[in-house]
Design a protein around this nucleic acid. Structure first.
Length: 271
DNA sequence: AGCCAGGAAGTCC
DNA sequence: GGACTTCATGGC
């Protein structure tokens, strides 16, 4: 157990912001996070705005701090927004507490292949069934329930198309199997993608079957933390047409437009 | 019944 | 390069 006082951290908003799919509220004000094969529970401190984490200081320092991007000042990002841009000001205000996670690369690839032409509640269900069927079972321990880790590439590479379809993947089943095979077989090397620059990493991700521009940018943003990546989905496309008919001011927000994109996406979801 | 959801591949030109 | 079609599933 670890108590920390944090600003710009709202687990509820992060859980429902559509960047991760295995973070959820399990009791009022208490959230669980399953990231790869790790489990974390986050509770509220008493009244002082602090949080209780179910991990040690060592695990926080070695993993979760980086995962939640605790070293970045999101208040500064929100304050940098053009004061005359009322839409964007409203979006970062409504989304204060959102952070961009650094998620596992393979988990993010598979998860965002599933997101295409899909909706978030259904995506969450599919991913949960995928984990139950192909992920490692991690037994209960005191102070933590049993859960399933996210599947390894090998398990998905060997999965049958029909077995994958039973989970509800639909036409995406073949994408999942083939991409897992490309990774397992060494055609696409994730360690290399992790170490490259944004442009080259994105180019290689596009080599995965079922990964196009939008999904590649989501992977770069939510796993590699490429804050320049600005995935445009149907919500963002509608928003751009409505609020930025002359174009989004990317030059003003160079280096972190993707973070603003996430505030915007959350705003469009809630609206 | 038809439309929509964090799109991409396939098939034209 | 761009336009058009097809692809599964479930909620509304």
């Amino acid at each position: 157990m670890l108590k920390m006082r944090l600003t710009d951290f709202d687990p509820g908003k992060i859980a429902s912001s559509g960047q991760c799919f295995r973070m959820k509220e399990i009791a009022y004000g208490t959230h669980e996070v399953i990231a790869g094969s790790r489990y974390l529970r986050i509770g509220r401190g008493c009244t002082d705005g602090s949080f209780i984490f179910s991990c040690s200081q060592k695990e926080m320092d070695s993993f979760w701090k980086n995962y939640f991007d605790f070293d970045t000042d999101y208040g500064e990002i929100r304050r940098s927004v053009d004061p005359s841009d009322h839409y964007l000001k409203g979006a970062v205000q409504a989304g204060s507490g959102i952070r961009i996670l650094r998620q596992d690369l393979f988990e993010t690839i598979i998860s965002f292949i599933i997101t295409q032409q899909n909706n978030i509640p259904r995506i969450r269900g599919i991913i949960e069934r995928l984990c139950m069927k192909y992920g490692r079972y991690i037994p209960e321990e005191k102070n933590r329930p049993a859960y399933f880790a996210f599947p390894e590439a090998g398990a998905l590479a060997e999965a049958g198309i029909q077995d994958l379809e039973e989970i509800g993947l639909g036409y995406r089943a073949k994408y999942i199997r083939k991409s897992a095979q490309q990774i397992e077989g060494g055609e696409i090397v994730l360690d290399e993608i992790a170490s490259l620059g944004y442009d080259e990493a994105k180019k290689r991700l596009l080599g995965l079957y079922g990964v196009g521009t939008k999904v590649a940018e989501c992977i770069c943003l939510f796993a590699r933390h490429d804050a320049d990546a600005f995935p445009v989905d149907v919500h963002i496309r509608r928003m751009l047409a409505e609020h930025y008919p002359d174009g989004f001011p990317f030059s003003r927000y160079r280096g972190y437009a993707g973070i603003l994109q996430q505030y915007i996406f959350y705003r469009e979801l809630e609206a």
